[in-house]
Write a protein that binds this DNA or RNA. Structure first.
Lengths: 161, 161
DNA sequence: GTTGAAAAGAATCGACT
DNA sequence: AGTCGATTCTTTTCAAC
């Protein structure tokens, strides 16, 4: 699907404030409220916008500790095996298979270090897990809302380069 | 600040759909629209809710590639030095100082592998960076909206354990 | 593709329990 | 703390450009 500058500006406005009125967004991007609405409807239908979410301060909810855990798995382990296993844990807020020595990298949020330890223990107990390597987060430096910045897609110059 | 069950249910509803009406949320949690509004206003004032954001499919905007980069820094490097340096790159969507061999872990979103390479090159050029170790993401398994799940804070049993 | 107006619906505020 | 009702603003739809 093709996104023009207007679409990208509208998305940026909605990432900034998902509860902004269509009139407000229209004022920012130079469009009428109904024009904005029709574009937002289209962006949702095509899947560019997948929903709207409150931004929450994790520590306000008790999530004061986070960690990254590298997973080393048995040779025949499929990504879907890992996905299925880690999906059981609400503490796993991110997971991806990666290149390099480790097979996967997990991002964990927990209430304290002891809690992190318990979660890692349970994940390490999965049959396909050979070993894990954990790093506790000391301080978070950047936590961008996904999609805050918008590159020129495919053609033209990539963002900030 | 104290969050009761109602506050946590309201937050969960807003993480699910930030554009839900106060009446809808009230119906879900058993409260009137104005009671919900007053609690949401308070949650925003106290900082538990920091804003509302559209969820965007990164690939729809051209962010088709992601990577994690470990940063090894000189002895006297301060976290704020790293924060300042990486904040210049919109491609760096996450960053944290961590325990272990590396000093920091960066999460990068880019348009393609070549783009990732260019960003790493520029970050590696920072004076305090000794070396980097990169992992390209092969497939994303979990990408939870931050704060989707809500633990019992401090007291009681932590989430799912 | 766009705009503008009218009807339905939601947010907001005050008074009250 | 909570609800209810009135006013104002927004969303939504539709006709027209």
């Amino acid at each position: 699907m093709e996104l023009d500058r207007l679409d990208r500006d509208i998305i940026a406005a909605l990432v900034e404030d998902a509860r902004a009125t269509f009139a407000d967004i229209g004022h920012q991007v130079g469009l009428s409220a109904s024009a904005v609405k029709r574009r937002v409807d289209r962006l949702r239908e095509t899947g560019a916008i997948t929903g709207f979410s409150a931004r929450v301060a994790p520590q306000a909810l008790g999530w004061t500790t986070e960690a990254y855990v590298e997973l080393f798995c048995q040779g025949k382990t499929k990504p879907s095996d890992i996905a299925l296993a880690v999906a059981k844990f609400p503490e796993v807020v991110g997971a991806a298979t990666i290149t390099g020595e480790a097979d996967a990298l997990l991002h964990i949020r927990a209430t304290d270090v002891r809690h992190v330890e318990r979660v890692i223990e349970r994940i390490a107990a999965e049959s396909f897990v050979v070993r894990t390597k954990s790093s506790i987060v000391l301080s978070r430096l950047v936590d961008a809302p996904p999609g805050t910045t918008v590159p020129e897609p495919r053609n033209g110059s990539p963002a900030q380069l």
